[in-house]
Design a protein around this nucleic acid. Sequence first.
RNA 1: GCGGCCGUAGUCUAGUCUGGCCUAGGACACUGGCCUUCCAAGCCAGUGACCCGGGUUCAAAUCCCGGCGGCCGCACCA
Length: 560
Amino acid sequence: MDVMELAKRRGFFWPSFEIYGGAGGFYDYGPLGTLLKWNIIETWRKIFVIEEGFYEIDTPTVNPEEIFIASGHVDHFVEQMVRCKSCGEAYRVEDMLEELRMSVESLTSEETEEKLRNLKCPNCGGDFGKTEEFNTMFRTSIGPAGGKTGYLRPETAQGMFISFRRLSKIARGKLPFGIAQIGRAYRNEISPRQGVIRLREFNMAEVEIFFDPEENSTHPKFKEVENEKIRILPAENQEERKKGEEVEVTLREASERYFLNEFFSYYIWLTKRFLLEIGIPEKALRFRQQLDEERAHYSADTWDAEVKTERFGWVEVAGHAYRTDYDLKRHMEFSGEDLSVFVAFESPREVEKLKVYPRMERLRKKMKGQALGKLIEITKKENEKILRELNEKGELEFDGVRLTREDFEVKKEKERVTGKKVIPHVIEPSYGIDRPIYCILELNYLEEGERIYLRLPPKIAPIKCGVFPLVSKDGLPEVAKEVDSLLRKRGIYTYYDESGSIGRRYARMDEVGTPYCVTVDYQTLEDGTATLRYRDTKEQIRLRIEEIPSFILREMGVLC
RNA sequence: GCGGCCGUAGUCUAGUCUGGCCUAGGACACUGGCCUUCCAAGCCAGUGACCCGGGUUCAAAUCCCGGCGGCCGCACCA
């Protein structure tokens, strides 16, 4: 028996499109898997949206092409492809060049084509044409034939950057603030394998925290957690990927020695909390710093949360990227919109500043009216730039006229500055949903002789409570059904079962991680009590029926 | 994408090499009934499979070709 088999058989998840032969990289969630997924998402929302107060949004999965040109995905998500001129067969350039022991990255496109001219099509011996770029994002078109090119998003993050201006207004211009998004993303993987670990369509939950790198390096809640410990594997300890010596440090130490700042540490801590709450055992968790060559194009530093699994080894379940101001800057550049935030100082500051003014009496002789008008305008707008140029070169050219320092007057002025414009930097904690689901199942899967059970935290278990009549006669089923509906009315997901022996019914519930079972027996008919059995210990206690719903909610930690 | 191995009910598997005795066998699970006073008990009955397509043959789960999918290694994994 293994957990994948259990997942399929009991309806957690299975490969999609089975009756048509399937397609790699797609999985269905079954009834139990769907419940489990929502419970995980709810746990996540409780931490990030409710406790931390990050604003949750929901943006489209299909995006126009410009967005991914600006974000860098169109350039960085490509593979080169080449077609044979006579038979039309397509090949990956990388595979072709491998025979020459060359890598594409080290060559320009002209050089690549030059090399390919010496090779022949393995299929028909024909010549190769020009290289084409093959992007592994899912491409689609928006609107009817000839419409706009679009892509399915490879991360939910872009939606949060695109709407930054609006979101910043809603956050009333304050920094730092965080945006959260839960949703699907798509990557047309070359060869997805490893079941639910590597999907072409997957679920993720991401947060973008926007902050002012000059002001917000400390986090108000950091003090509460600074002595908590985490296990980390910094880049300096990795002679190669996935291997190396882990160190146990406090968040304070990590913050001083390894991480960008307290801010970053705090979010690493939240990740640990989240993963422990959904049932990842602490001993199977570590934070690993990505090596330079692994990092995404937008990241200056990335630490992954990794979970050690039996089947797949260390699995990355969350990443924490320091995206700097890369995304906002790029979107500013490509959209022409100002995505900076005005940060007011606590009190206005007096600043002495050098300002440059055109000397009108001299300039009137040098240039015509219209050009002079333009110069005045530009001097107002780009005062600093002109001053710098004059200082560095001693002159500047404007509208074909050479202007020297003598044409300008430089004055020292006091200026009242009330704040500054900041392009926020971004820390991105990004979580997979599908991968943790697998990890939770595998790491909580226990076999004790004949008995198989999933030791899921009650809060995330799909079914909370089994409800059984001890035997299916003498009016017991009727009472048990009443108990069942009592629980459901309180929002507790139950499973009513009266078939087979009582032991078999407990076993069925154990197998899918149901933490509690309530059994109605003959004593129930006399005094209105029923037994409540715990999954992990198999112990039973007796409770009055009407107390059961609140009791279970308290046990789950939902009620206090 | 490359190379190796593989694909039989819900699950695990027998059968494949050596084509016919396969109307495809078993175990567990599941459904219905009987029984059953707390941990997969028992009895009876039942549902349910040769990945898809083509070929060879009198005859294909079995041999051949193609596709799809899976596992392992390489590559890829923003």
